[in-house]
Nucleic acid binder design. Structure first.
Lengths: 143, 143
DNA sequence: TAAAATACTACTAAAACCATAGGAATATAG
DNA sequence: CTATATTCCTATGGTTTTAGTAGTATTTTA
C-alpha cells in the first residue's frame, strides 16, 4: 500500500503555505522550486486543495496562496481526504447487501479497524502541529 | 487510499483456509464459489500466499490448501505485506539523501506515524483472532 | 488410465498515476 | 492603458497497476 505522490507533494505544499501564513501569499513557483516539483503539476494539486476550501488564492503580481483558515483549524485528515480520496473504502459498506460469507464479514471488520487507526492519527493533528515541528527543527539547524 | 481487491480477496481466502484448518485441505473452487471470486484469479492470489510460505498445497483429487503453520502463528501483517506490498513506502527512507526541505522532513514523520498505526493493528492480530471472531459470529447466526 | 486437482505462463482491457502543454483570465505597477 | 506576473482551465500522453481471462502442463488418487 502506497501513499501517492499527489498526497505527498500536496501535503508538503500546504505545509509550505502554512509556514508562510503570516508572511503573506506564497506562489506556486516558489513552492515548486523549494520542493523540486514540476510547476504545472503542483498547480493541479493546489487546485484540488483550493477547491476543498483549504486555501485561498490571489491572482496577478504578488499573488499566490494563503491558508483559508488558521493552521490549528485545518485537520490533517481533511487534507488527506481531499488528496488521497476517502480512506479505505470497503465495498459492502455502501451496497448494503448482506456479506457473502463469514470470512467476508470478519475481514471487513479488520479493514475498518485499520481505517480507524489511520484516521485516528490524522484527525488528531492539525497543520499547526506540523508548523510547530518544522519551526523547532529549523532552530536546531541554525544552532 | 484503497485497499486492493487482491488483498481483500486474499485475506478472505486464507481465512477460509484457516477455518478449515482441522478439516483438511480446502480447494480453490470451493473458496471461489463461497466468495464468488473467479477461480483463475483466486489461483494466482493463493499462489502469492503460498510462495510466502503461509499455506501448503496438495495436488490431485482431494487436494487443496492447508495452513503451513497454526493460525495463531500467522500474523495478519505477514499476509497483508505479501498481498499488498510493503506498507507505506516513503522515498527518502531508502535513498538516504537529506530531505530537500523542512516540509519534506516533517511530512515524512507524519507518514511514518500513519504507517506505524497500520502496522500496530496488523502485527498484533493473528489469523486465530479472525477465526475466533468468525466462529463466535457463526454461533450467533445459528441461534 | 481417467479424472481431479494444483502450477505455470502469457495475454489484455481498463483505470489510475504522474505528469506536460498551451492558452485564458485577472490583478498590479508604472 | 499597457506590460507583466500570476492563477485558472482543459486537453493530452506515457507508464504502471489492477483485475482479471485463457491455455496448457504437472501431479496425485482411485
Amino acid at each position: 500500500m502506497k501513499i501517492s505522490t499527489r498526497t505527498r507533494y500536496g501535503m508538503r505544499a500546504i505545509l509550505e503555505i502554512a509556514l508562510a501564513y503570516k508572511a503573506g501569499p506564497l506562489q506556486i513557483k516558489v513552492i515548486a522550486e523549494r520542493q523540486n516539483i514540476s510547476n504545472k503539476y503542483l498547480e493541479q494539486l493546489i487546485a484540488i486543495i483550493k477547491s476543498a476550501g483549504l486555501v485561498r488564492s490571489m491572482r496577478g503580481p504578488h499573488g499566490g496562496y494563503v491558508l483559508a483558515k488558521s493552521p490549528e483549524d485545518i485537520k490533517l485528515s481533511e487534507i488527506f481526504r481531499v488528496l488521497e480520496g476517502p480512506v479505505f473504502t470497503v465495498e459492502c459498506v455502501e451496497n448494503k447487501e448482506a456479506c457473502a460469507s463469514f470470512a467476508d464479514c470478519i475481514t471487513r471488520r479488520l479493514w475498518i479497524e485499520v481505517n480507524d487507526a489511520i484516521l485516528n492519527v490524522l484527525t488528531n493533528k492539525t497543520l499547526q502541529d506540523l508548523v510547530e515541528m518544522a519551526e523547532k527543527e529549523k532552530l536546531n539547524y541554525q544552532i
